[in-house]
Structure formats: C-alpha cells, structure tokens
C-alpha cells in the first residue's frame, strides 16, 4: 500500500485511516504488525488459536482506544503491550479452566525433560521450538514477559522499561535470570 505521494504510509496515517473506517489502512496496519504480535503471543501461549485470539483482541483494544495513544511510545510497543497482556490473560484463564476440569499435574522440571534425550541431530526445528516454548512457559511471568518482548518482539531494553514502567536495570536483571533458567531447563540436550 502506497500513499498518494508514492511512499509507504506512516503508522499515524494508517491509524487515522482506520479511525475513518478505511479498510485498506486496517489491512496494511495488520499486515505490518501481525507477525511480531503473533510471535509474542504464541511464545507466551504456545497455542495458535489462543495466540490469534490475543492478537485480535490486542488490535481491537488498541484501535478502539486510539485517543489514548499519545505518541509517547511507538505504535508497535503499544500494540505489543496490549497483545502480551491479552495473551497473559488468556493463559491465566486457560490455566484456571484446566485446573477445574483436569486432574492436577505435578510436573517437575525433570518430568518433562526427557531423561534420555535423542541425539541433537534427531531434534528437528519443531522439537527444539517446542522445548523452548515449554521452558519459557515455566519462567516466572515477569521474566517470561521481558524475555519474549525482547527476543520475539524485538524491543530494546529502553522500550521494555518504558512499556512496563520498570528501570532498565530491572529489564537487564529479568533477562539475565530468565536466560540462566532457560539454560538450566534446556540443559545441554538442545544447546551447544
């Protein structure tokens, strides 16, 4: 999509278009940010349908509250904040539902880490991703969120700090401990 002067429209121009009911602007905005939003939601939920719900909910909340977007952050970081909150809400809801209708699980870290792992060469991308997703899901929520926003959302320490209202030092600390824990969880079976 190109604007009348032949350049790609800015986020602000697209947002103004969406506010005016322009479908093309909505589609372009979705196309521009859907992948990064989905990556964040998926890594927080490990479930495609739930992640799509979180992305949809996030876009909807953002686009119906445009008047609250004052340009203090980028549209991307604002969107990712809302999408990640939606994903965490969905995750909590899912946990609640599972705890009500399923027998309680008492998995320890060793329960889900295969005690006799396949050789690394046998692990395809899907295996490795699933193991990472599982490990990420076991992180404390505050570490998980920072880790995902940085790794999958592509946000800088400053953007994450501003988004979450914490200091850069706290972002650094949460990332550090998240990675150390992931290293322990994934052990050497998938990491060189």
């Amino acid at each position: 999509m190109l604007s009348s002067n032949g350049r790609s429209p800015s986020d602000d121009e697209l947002l103004a278009g969406v506010a005016g009911g322009d479908m093309n602007c909505l589609e372009e905005l979705l196309r521009r940010y859907r992948s990064v939003a989905y990556r964040v939601a998926y890594r927080l939920l490990s479930h495609e349908a739930d992640a799509l719900d979180a992305v949809q909910e996030g876009f909807l909340k953002v686009l119906t509250n445009l008047q609250r977007f004052r340009g203090e952050s980028t549209f991307k970081s604002w969107l990712l904040r809302v999408v990640s909150n939606a994903a965490l809400d969905i995750g909590r809801q899912r946990q609640l539902t599972e705890s009500r209708f399923s027998s309680p699980l008492s998995l320890t870290e060793q329960d889900w880490i295969d005690p006799s792992p396949a050789p690394e060469s046998d692990l395809d991308r899907s295996d490795l991703r699933q193991q990472l997703d599982h490990a990420v899901s076991s992180l404390p929520e505050h570490q998980r969120l920072v880790f995902v926003l940085h790794a999958d959302g592509g946000l800088s320490y400053r953007e994450i700090a501003d988004m979450l209202g914490i200091s850069i030092g706290t972002v650094m600390s949460r990332l550090f401990y998240a990675r150390q824990r992931l290293k322990t969880l994934l052990a050497d079976q998938v990491l060189r």
Partner: peptide, 23 residues
C-alpha cells in the same frame, strides 16, 4: 531454529474480517 510457525492466510483473513466488522 525455534521460529514461531506463521498462521495460514485464511487465519489472518478471519482476523481481518473480525476486526473490520468490529471497527
């Protein structure tokens, strides 16, 4: 190696339609 698999075009289309309808 751990890239998140992209949803299908049809899945994105459903999201777009829902957003368009709601907005």
């Amino acid at each position: 190696q751990v890239a998140v698999p992209e949803p299908s075009a049809a899945a994105w289309y459903r999201v777009l339609r829902t957003l368009a309808d709601r907005l």
